[in-house]
Design a protein around this nucleic acid. Structure first.
Lengths: 231, 231
DNA sequence: TATCATTAATGATATATATCATAATATGTA
DNA sequence: TACATATTATGATATATATCATTAATGATA
């Protein structure tokens, strides 16, 4: 599967109607000329904290993590983005440089659209501007909501949240392959790796989930939701 | 000081150049006709979770808190907004109803601009759209950054953060009147009220700060910054 | 002013979570 | 394949934080 840097036409992209629905044929043509579609293997870095922001990044396929490296080289994951998400968050409007790093958790395809083109469209196409703001806003809003969801809960509630998150929001299935390690789960919910593993084992013993390595199946979703709600 | 519902002209507002600099005289006139400037006493509610979003809210003067009420009536503070902040965050583009409540921490003046006017300007004035988005983005971005700052630290680091936050970002002085109760500090940093009080006492004993009720003076900012950095 | 309610303060204790240690398992790689 | 490395797993212990209890101080109000 050699997709690196292959450029597809937005006009034919299945997601066009979602991300760029209010653009004319002319404008789509312009995007195509200022766009790169890059393929990233699982584990590959898409951008680094400090890099200059030059493109608007849109996840077409796959799964990525946004994270920050702390002073002690520890990593803190801010969010997991799924297809159709704008993965640069709002920094692209308020910063010159990326304040987060992004890495592919699964093989992913990212569209890089020259930021100047987006700015141009915002200036010249009001309908697009409004639509675009709505979409990008909801992504940022959900990051804030998620952080609150996680931080107002304790360990068991946080693990329940993560399981429900991947099951409902990412894979839409009670059975899924956890795309991140236990250590990364810990980095996402501000807990120690050992405790993440411990609680997962607890949930297994309590027959809420089945675990086989990274393969997880939610068996008792009602109980899991109760733990998420009330701890 | 009876300022309730008094409408001033944006044209003459000291903050115009910051918030609405790229609007024509014509457009400013339009804003004035679709705007209410409301005065809120300390403690008064500005909007409630669930309320329909009909205006874009801009804090002209004072200090407010954005918070969410949890299932158990416990409140969780998301952020403290200061003059010039857009206090509705991005929800205004991605939600029909407020997902947070807002209350005045000090006597405050809030400008309510009809959301339809803002939408109109975004559609028709591209320069305004871009400028507006930069500003609103940076407010949302800083909320995300703050949540991470707080949650990756433990108790002492979080209290240090709060003290530095009010000193540097809100009052620009080493001496200030803490505008929120210890309980509210706890709600802001996800800690128990008792521990907030305890750590403040510790800091006092260690001669990092002086406390007299709500009056706080940072005496040893270097040490406080070290605690913020390394715990 | 007296009364009540809220906030602040501190100690004792319980609980949650992190850290340390060790082992088993899985994964990448020469 | 075999080795090195990272991940998963579990127990024991240390530490951080919450909860409970009590008192003092402050603020609001009739």
């Amino acid at each position: 599967m050699e997709l690196s840097h292959k450029v597809n036409h937005c006009k034919e992209c299945v997601y066009r109607s979602w991300a760029f629905k209010n653009l004319s044929a002319e404008e789509l043509k312009k995007i195509n000329s200022k766009k790169v579609e890059k393929f990233f293997r699982k584990g590959e870095k898409i951008c680094l904290e400090g890099d200059e922001i030059s493109s608007f990044m849109y996840l077409q396929n796959g799964l990525v993590k946004l994270y920050k490296t702390e002073v002690n080289t520890k990593e803190h994951i801010i969010s997991i983005a799924k297809p159709r998400d704008f993965i640069g968050l709002l920094s692209i409007f308020s910063n010159k440089n990326h304040i987060y790093s992004i890495t592919a958790l699964e093989d992913s395809i990212v569209c890089f659209v020259d930021l100047s083109v987006i700015r141009d469209f915002i200036k010249t196409n009001g309908i697009f501007a409004l639509d675009f703001f709505e979409k990008i806003s909801s992504v940022s809003d959900s990051v804030i909501k998620t952080r609150i969801d996680i931080n107002t809960r304790q360990l068991r509630g946080r693990i329940a949240y993560i399981l429900l998150f991947f099951s409902k929001h990412i894979y839409d299935s009670s059975k899924f392959n956890l795309p991140i390690s236990r250590k990364e789960v810990a980095e996402l919910i501000d807990m120690s790796t050992e405790n993440v593993i411990r609680v997962l084992s607890e949930f297994r013993k309590d027959k809420l989930i089945q675990i086989e390595g990274k393969n997880i199946e939610i068996v008792d979703i009602k109980k899991l939701e109760r733990i998420y709600e009330f701890g």
